[in-house]
């Protein structure tokens, strides 16, 4: 297996899918001549030409809608948002067009489209550029949502998303693009809707996705080293559909859980996960489920304040100690 960055794994997925299917095209700001704001589309314009690697004006609503219209005609667009912060301008097309046309047409017109781009905070980009939209997009029936944490999952989930006949949201991360990992070559598909145990454990389950997988893994290491606690790290990978079976299976083994996410606490992804656990695994719980999220504030610019706002291994360890009654 080759070792690739998350960025190059996405690039490989795009390239392979575009080679395989002439209906796949990429559209977004700076994807062509500039080679991608985060270089995910590096080299693709040269290989596929301007009809399939389409530079757009800064008009998220407009080009998202052009993507949906092209999907109505049977093409398979991949729409890149420079970041999900800007995709908020396109929400009408994602929510009112992409997610609803199949249903309101009585099943006549599927929308095979991918909306992808970096989500959540990077470093010191302040409030408007540091937002995790996981919960917003996962709320909508008619959409699928994936949030890969590793290069292998990034490749496998993007390929699955492109081949899916539905609108799929792919949440990437600016802080993930340089992460390296082993990536299977060629036909590597990660099915949408399957979580993955990134570290097996016995005493408590850390349920996480995207950037918080690394946070949870670090917390698990610290707990093993300092407290002799064996934490299981369950990477959701898909937020809609949610792999309820995997969540319940893990909680059945550990009887305790902490849910970690980049987004805000109110009506977040963790709230949905907790609902599944209390409903289906109430009798197996040895402690209330706790959540670690971004602080319930717009992201501050100041470095120290930003660190306080984000989920950290320390906050995960603190939550884990509480559910294990170690305090």
């Amino acid at each position: 297996m080759a070792t690739l960055t998350y960025r190059d794994a996405l690039n490989q997925a795009l390239r392979e899918e575009m080679q395989r299917d002439p209906d796949v095209f990429l559209m977004g700001e700076e994807v062509g001549v500039y080679q991608g704001a985060y270089k995910v589309s590096r080299g693709l314009l040269e290989e596929f030409g301007p009809m399939r690697i389409v530079d757009t004006p800064i008009a998220e609503l407009g080009f998202a809608g052009i993507g949906v219209g092209a999907a109505m005609a049977g093409l398979r667009p991949v729409i890149e948002f420079m970041t999900w912060n800007f995709a908020v301008l396109a929400l009408d097309q994602i929510v009112n067009s992409a997610a609803k046309i199949l249903y309101e047409s009585g099943g006549q017109i599927p929308i095979p489209i991918v909306f992808r781009g970096p989500n959540g905070a990077a470093l010191q980009l302040a409030a408007q550029h540091s937002q995790a939209w996981d919960a917003w997009v996962s709320h909508i029936p008619g959409l699928k949502v994936v949030a890969p944490a590793t290069p292998a999952d990034a490749k496998g989930l993007l390929k699955a998303a492109i081949r899916d006949n539905n609108p799929v949201i792919v949440l990437e991360g600016e802080m993930l693009y340089n992460v390296k990992g082993e990536v299977p070559e060629g036909e590597h598909i990660v099915p949408i809707g399957q979580a993955d145990v990134k570290r097996p454990g016995r005493d408590v389950t850390f349920i996480c996705h995207s950037k918080t997988v690394a946070v949870a893994l670090k917390a698990a290491e610290q707990m093993a080293e300092h407290e002799g606690v064996s934490a299981e790290v369950l990477d959701l990978r898909s937020l809609r559909p949610l792999d309820e079976e995997a969540i319940l299976g893990s909680v059945a083994r550990t009887n305790r859980a902490v849910v970690i996410e980049e987004g805000w606490p109110h009506a977040g992804i963790g709230a949905q996960v907790v609902d599944v656990i209390q409903r289906e695994a109430f009798d197996q719980l040895d402690a209330p489920v706790l959540r670690v999220t971004q602080a319930d504030v717009p992201m501050p610019y100041n470095k120290q304040l930003e660190r306080l706002a984000k989920p950290s291994p320390e906050r995960v360890v603190a939550a884990a100690r509480r559910v294990l009654y170690l305090d």
């Binding site: 609503l61 407009g62 080009f63 998202a64 809608g65 052009i66 993507g67 949906v68 219209g69 092209a70 999907a71 109505m72 005609a73 049977g74 093409l75 667009p77 009408d92 097309q93 009112n96 067009s97 046309i101 309101e104 047409s105 017109i109």
Partner: peptide
Amino acid sequence: MGGHGIVGGHVPLAAGLGFAI
């Protein structure tokens, strides 16, 4: 390709159909 309920929301879809052509 539909009646659409959000004023102006379907105008980009038309361009997308044109793009596919």
